[in-house]
Write a protein that binds this DNA or RNA. Structure first.
Lengths: 345, 345
DNA sequence: CTGAAAGCGCTTACAG
DNA sequence: CTGAAAGCGCTTACAG
């Protein structure tokens, strides 16, 4: 009960009650082994008695460390980021850090503003999504010496920031091989907007490269870029299917677009996978809930968020702006929406 | 470019460059109308030239205001909270506040810890979910004079904290009437754990009260409480359907449980709604994506998050610990999973 | 191992 | 309308 008094107690109160200096109290809390056990116990007792909790603003100002990590993500509205961010936040909490969150609503121009905002608020480190970013932002981060880690992507050595994620192009290439193996030769692609999104870009590139490998040129491919959302995916699917030579397989840049396509197919009376195959990317929970269940690429959301927290905190505590990138592996999950090409039986 | 120099510039730098005191610079930034235009322009020019951005930790320490709002939610992993929180965060950003986020992973005991943590970090206000909370936490909030707003629930006057949300019991009662109107007399309920969750409790209460209204006692009702998740919903559904007199309608406490039930029905070869009806609560996107589409209660996620931000910021700026609660209305969305009772045709 | 004191970068009565 | 100065609650060289 003493802890819940009107005025929150401060370091000086603890010092007074335990009969030591504020410096010693501070040491007990931050570097306990630099103080003899007897003193430490005395102080810790006073801390408990007063229900003392440090003022993080003061601590941040004095120590130039906030124990706060900022994340700038497109949106937390969908499962694609929510799961990873949840894991990120959980592990951060375990490590004594709190998550400051900002979103761009998929507006590229907002990212810089949010990064500057989180920096002004003293974020010890920043989690960013993907590598698409201006040099100005990169210079800002470097000038301020703020560790930043990119997630949902991999750094093959060409990117400026260390990354934890997976090989977007490689994963999609592998799935494309599965599609080709089933006889499909006219591929439709529903991609997220690629202009400010390297992940989307790489996924499409993975498809293109694999088609080229087997001698299929751009005539075999029909790509539509669309906004994020179930409805957008559905509309893109309709557009794709109303072409003269419509695709026998539609590969989608993410599960949300794929599920939207699936719903559109049902509405249009197009049978999946008998008339057309559909694939996704992400393996979010909805992939198993739709009927037929979605063939997609499994992404280790939880592990990525978890390790991202560990890596970023390590960068922060070791004051490193760089560190080896880590690539997580993805797996193809064959469910029911991918079947043989209808032209092939 | 001058803004991205090695050492971030501070207030004193701006003061020096513009030839005024730091007090005046501070006023230009915080209460611009308390300084004459000529001075203001001079200062703002220096701010721009130096790319000055205030250090929020220092500002927080001096002004006892962080422009940070904390939210403690069960999890951001699912759409039920993610949509509302996203809207909350967007509006917060518009109002100049940043969101500090913590989750409890549905562990009641963690909420207090997270609240204390966010308080220590100087949150100007707190967003909490539901009314279930110990007096100790309530006293802490009040003692520290931290404005707190409850979302996803309504305050009928008996709760300690102001709320923005909806009438969980009333909404479920209304849906129950729809179910009864279709001839159902044996109702199964799949509820989230009610022990630390007033929303779940109220939803079940709404069903119970409505059954009582028409003279149906507890014999007509079979309630299973389960953990959160699609799988949990499916398992509960199986359990319900394997009872001797199995229900003709299964009402679920949220859409996630309902969709899990729906999937289980498909796996068990039980036809929905021919053999059994299923209803949800929340109207998250997945409700329209499953087949058949889910009959559920539409909750205004976006509006709730949006208004929550406005209310909480108002409480913060007006230094009020209380304010009139607002009740948003829900609507029943009749889709395909609710049909007539099979015993009734 | 511990303390006195300066300093972190702001804000805000208080004067003028 | 503006400035000098104290103070917000911590941390951390620097002595001892």
């Amino acid at each position: 009960m003493t802890g819940d008094t009107r005025r929150p107690s401060k370091l000086a109160d603890v010092a007074r009650l335990s009969g030591v200096s504020t410096a010693t109290v501070s040491r007990c809390l931050n570097t306990p082994d630099r103080v003899v056990p007897a003193t430490r116990e005395k102080v810790l007792k006073a801390v408990a008695e007063l229900g003392y909790a440090p003022n993080f603003s003061a601590r941040a100002l004095a120590a130039r460390q906030t124990f706060t990590i900022g994340a700038v993500i497109p949106t937390m509205e969908n499962a694609i980021f929510a799961r990873g961010i949840q894991a990120f936040q959980e592990e951060l909490g375990r490590l004594g850090y709190t998550l400051l969150i900002a979103s761009t609503s998929y507006q590229e121009s907002l990212e810089e503003e949010q990064i500057r905002n989180l920096a002004a608020r003293g974020s010890d480190g920043l989690l960013l999504i993907g590598h698409h970013r201006s040099n100005r932002v990169l210079d800002f981060l470097q000038g301020r010496e703020i560790p930043a880690l990119v997630a949902w992507a991999h750094n093959d050595g060409t990117a400026a920031l260390p990354a934890i994620g997976f090989d977007n192009a490689g994963a999609m290439a592998e799935l494309t091989r599965e599609v080709l193996a089933r006889g499909h030769r006219r591929i439709g692609v529903i991609s997220a907007q690629t202009a400010a999104n390297d992940r989307a870009r790489l996924r499409v590139a993975g498809i293109r490269a694999t088609l080229a490998d087997v001698g299929l040129g751009s005539a075999a491919l029909s790509v539509i870029e669309t906004q994020y959302g179930f409805d957008a995916g559905g509309a893109a699917f309709s557009a794709l299917m109303s072409q003269e030579a419509s695709p026998t397989a539609v590969m989608c840049g993410n599960d949300v677009l794929a599920v939207g396509a699936l719903r559109a197919a049902r509405e249009l009376g197009i049978s999946v996978p008998n008339d057309v195959s559909i694939t996704g990317f992400d393996d979010i929970e909805i992939a198993t809930l739709v009927d037929p269940p979605l063939t997609t690429i499994h992404v280790p959301h939880g592990a990525m968020g978890h390790r991202a927290a560990q890596m970023l905190v390590q960068m922060v505590t070791e004051k490193r702006l760089n560190m080896p990138s880590v690539e997580l592996s993805t797996t193809i999950v064959l469910r029911a929406t991918l079947g043989p090409s209808p032209g092939n039986d």
